[in-house]
């Protein structure tokens, strides 16, 4: 079995940054595994601006921001990039099995960095009752359909949750010619950045309902509408406050959860605590460790 000094799983922003940081600190035998056909991860579909303000002092889009790091990565020697590579198994001794078209390989990593990102919570995870028609999308899937595939999911949209992707998609749908009927948020303020509330929702006069939730999805084959209801500060439904909105599309923007299945497979406990800032700290620590050891 081949052994590599460092294996990084995930070629999104975190994985690319980890590879560059490790290289800067002297690591020369790096394998970067990415399941998609290109590097950059979710940044490729984040075509809006707002990236790079801190790092490049420029207001870049996701693909531009990713592109700069990808270019840097390609200029470094000693980093092998394996695309369309899907890790199917990970053991506690850091042995990985991955599939790519035409090949199944097993390798051992001396050091392993998991930069597998996260996935969006679905309608099912927040238990929205009602029918189960076509037309319910996670905001990120809708973003991929519009920005990568050039497909418009629907003409009349209700967005559940005011996370950043949901807010950004409100504007995208509108600019693609759809009508955004409402953004429904159960909390009393937006979960997204205030600038996204301003430039994606308020700019276009899209109604934003706080302290509301979806009681039911209606529609046999395709979404026909939603029943919404007001909630009090304890998030309990307020009787008699229900109303209906007709729409053909529902976007779920209700949060992200870390994609930790592989780490769990390797037997690591409490992985769900390693997320976001914690994960960044972990990567930083690894980079520092390399400096000390080498």
């Amino acid at each position: 079995m081949t052994e590599r000094d460092l294996v990084i799983v995930g070629g999104g922003p975190a994985g690319i940054a980890a590879a560059i940081a490790a290289h800067e600190n002297g690591v020369r035998d790096i394998l970067l595994l990415e399941r998609d056909q290109y590097l950059g991860g979710i940044l490729n579909q984040c075509i809006h601006t707002g990236f790079g303000l801190g790092y490049f002092k420029e207001n870049l889009t996701g693909p531009e921001y990713a592109g700069r790091f990808i270019e840097k990565l390609h200029s470094l020697k000693g980093i092998e990039i394996s695309l369309s590579s899907f890790v199917v198994n990970l053991t506690s001794d850091k042995t990985l099995t991955y599939l790519k078209p035409g090949m199944l390989s097993t390798i051992r990593a001396k050091v392993l960095i998991m930069a597998t990102g996260c996935r969006e919570k679905t309608r099912e995870m927040v238990h929205i009752a009602g029918d189960r028609p076509a037309g319910v999308f996670s905001a990120g899937l809708a973003q991929k359909l519009i920005n990568i595939e050039g497909l418009l999911p629907g003409n009349e949209v209700v967005i559940v949750g005011s996370g950043d992707i949901g807010l950004i998609m409100a504007r995208r749908f509108l600019l693609e010619g759809a009508e955004v009927k409402a953004v429904i948020e159960i909390q009393k303020e937006s979960r997204g950045l205030i600038r996204n509330v301003v430039q994606c929702v308020k700019d276009f006069g899209i109604p934003l309902y706080f302290r509301h939730k979806i009681a039911k999805i209606r529609g046999k084959d395709r979404v026909e509408g939603v029943d919404i209801v007001k909630v009090d500060d304890a998030l309990n439904e307020i009787p008699g406050s229900g109303s209906k909105i007709s729409c053909d599309t529902i976007l779920m923007s209700v949060g992200l959860i870390p994609e930790n299945e592989l780490v769990e497979m390797a037997g690591v406990k409490d992985v769900n605590k390693i997320f976001g800032r914690e994960a960044c700290r972990a990567i930083f620590k690894v980079a520092k460790l390399w400096k000390i050891e080498n």
Partner: peptide, 19 residues
């Protein structure tokens, strides 16, 4: 792509293709 459905006619996944 606009005629791909979830479970038959009426349950199309997307409404328009930029093409």
């Amino acid at each position: 792509l606009t005629r791909v459905t979830k479970r038959g006619a009426g349950s199309e996944i997307v409404k328009k293709d930029r093409l």
